[in-house]
């Protein structure tokens, strides 16, 4: 009965989307999680699974410009979407200003939350280029970090804001 439905189904299906500026096509079950498709089909392992329930944010990616937990996105919903992962943030060898600031100000310790945290920060700065400390706290509150106590992450984001403002 689902034959007249425009896309999806139960069997594996082919679908395309853009990842880090590149058009990618995968053949997967429509209920595969975006996180698994990125990690296993596309070998983009920067997004991590920390909790599988949208609580820790370590699987964060940008989907059509919006920060999402990729563990909660069935791949069919990412059809034709524009996805940016941590691997797509640096321009070649040139780090993004947030990456640079995380490096300089101790924003990354064990590094497991770092990709998601940097993407959350990047999303925040896109929407709000001059965030207050309160905005930063709120903007990152969906990304759990067990190492840093967040303070040096706030420092890093604040420095990236300054850096951006200068350039």
């Amino acid at each position: 009965m689902t034959t007249n439905i425009s896309s999806g189904g139960r069997a594996k299906c082919e679908l395309s989307f853009t990842v880090n500026g590149e058009r990618r096509t995968v053949r997967v079950h429509p209920m595969e999680r975006l996180l698994d498709v990125l990690r296993q089909e596309l070998a983009l392992t920067g997004a991590k699974e920390g909790c599988a329930e949208g609580e820790c944010g370590s699987c964060s990616v940008l989907m059509d410009g919006a920060l999402v937990n990729s563990c909660l996105v069935p791949i069919l919903q990412a059809k034709s979407a524009n996805i940016v992962t941590i691997e797509g943030l640096a321009a070649g060898a040139q780090l993004n200003c947030l990456q640079e600031a995380f490096l300089d100000f101790g924003g990354a310790q064990c590094g497991i939350c770092t990709p998601g945290m940097i993407l959350a920060a990047s999303h925040l700065l896109q929407r709000n280029p001059q965030p207050t400390i309160g905005d930063i706290r709120e903007g990152l509150s969906g990304n759990l970090c067990r190492c840093t106590g967040y303070v040096q992450i706030f420092d890093a984001v604040a420095k990236a804001v300054q850096f951006k403002a200068r350039t």
Partner: peptide, 14 residues
Amino acid sequence: MRSDPADYELVAPA
């Protein structure tokens, strides 16, 4: 992940 994607059907009508 404690479910098998192959066990589920997902459709996206227009």
